[in-house]
Design a protein around this nucleic acid. Structure first.
Lengths: 232, 232
DNA sequence: GAGAGCCTTAAGATTTTCTTAATAACCAAT
DNA sequence: ATTGGTTATTAAGAAAATCTTAAGGCTCTC
């Protein structure tokens, strides 16, 4: 589908991260670190969705949102820091279609972006197809909509982290994903730690729920010294 | 049905919001921020309904309403701010088919629009179909007309907020709806506070009335870390 | 202006999920 | 076989999200 997505955040690190997540999903990204540049972009490009930080140094998210509503009307997702004081953001989020508080997980962002794109499908240039939010192969089904995972017709009850790990592994099936990459893709910018085995523990839980084992892997295979992978 | 709806309000944010709500319901929207542009539109387009702010800077809602009555005769819904002084709006709302005071809930607006369209069905081009104001599946029936909810033939007495939440969940059944999105869809233009559990409390009340429980959900399922959903 | 119904807020309890840490098992190279 | 580094397992405490309850405030009606 290759939707065009506008992302605006004066925290460069955040904007860059979001860009990476979106590009991983084959979206085309227009990224700006201030409101003014974003405003210019809105009229020039054919956009399908915008992700806006509410608190920008020049033009705030609300004003950008209004401009979008005024002329173009594609979905808007607002970003707010969890600690941001209520009286500061009051009104600024008005008119958005969804809100996400930082920090967020990559998959959460992706899921909401796709949900909005689907909702607006009739008004924009994007024709989302079911595969975009569904991964299905060899008995395994992951549905981003319902957040459900099915293995050979049987429903697995996964936690958000487990779901996210499995999603990343499945998206990259056939390729080994290092534990660092996995960590980055699942936890995002939360923090950086190299000496933790938290990924391992979640892999273990996943395997348990999938009736899989490290020794005789049916799904998640350990590649020594490299990472984990799921066969194509 | 795809009715053509005219919306006029000099408060851009309001007009934009209304536009979003209506487009979500597949209506075709003509939006203007002043009276004059709206007047021009009335003769040019084949309209089915108008939503007018009474207090406009140039041509007031009343005059627009008269023009509609004069030549075209399709339903008119007037918008008034709750605080607007009685003597200022007296007379201005005369002749309208319905009135809505701001702030309003998305679902309230939609319900009234649909009601008017149905009432005028013989005079306009629109063929409303029953599904537009009725959701029914697996023992659950929601009627936007009567604002009634029936569960396995038994009537539930829901408050407006509860009805609205259930409506949104049912409309999106099969998909997880985050509490942010739920808040936006139900409360409309209110700002979002991220430490508020008001959605949760209403979910709790809903479950109680539906003889449902968080622990063994029959209808409203909690998806930890993501939101709520009703199975397809 | 009194009462009823409804909505919101707050606080504490509960449940679920995540991380840590300690130990065991494993692999590959020597 | 031994060794060093990597992965697996387990359990327990920490953290986070949700649930529940109740009180106070608001709005509408009579």
């Amino acid at each position: 589908m290759a939707a065009n997505i506008l992302i605006v955040d004066d925290e460069q690190a955040i904007a860059d991260l979001v860009e990476v997540y979106l590009k991983n999903e084959n979206f085309h990204v227009f990224k700006f670190y201030n409101g003014q540049d974003a405003l210019n972009c809105i009229d020039k490009e054919k956009l399908d969705l915008a992700i806006l930080d509410v608190m920008l140094p020049d033009v705030d998210g609300f004003s950008i949102c209004q401009k979008i509503r005024d002329k173009h009307n594609f979905p808007v997702i607002m970003l707010t820091a969890r600690e941001e004081e209520i009286d500061k953001i009051t009104g600024l989020t008005l008119g958005a279609d969804d809100y996400i508080t930082k920090p967020f997980r990559p998959l959460e962002l992706i899921a909401r972006v796709k949900a909005q794109l689907r909702r607006f499908t009739k008004y924009n240039s994007v024709k989302p197809n079911r595969e975009e939010h569904l991964i299905a192969f060899s008995g395994l089904v992951l549905d981003l909509d319902s957040h459900e995972c099915t293995l050979n017709e049987k429903k697995l009850s996964l936690t958000p982290t487990e779901f996210s790990i499995l999603w990343v592994l499945c998206k990259n099936r056939g390729r080994v994903v290092s534990s660092e990459e996995l960590f980055h893709e699942v936890w995002g910018d939360k923090y950086f730690t190299n000496n933790n085995n938290t990924v391992m523990v979640h892999i273990r839980h996943l395997r348990e729920k999938m009736h899989d084992s490290a020794e005789h892997p049916k799904y998640i295979r350990t590649v020594w010294g490299v990472g984990y992978k799921i066969e194509k």
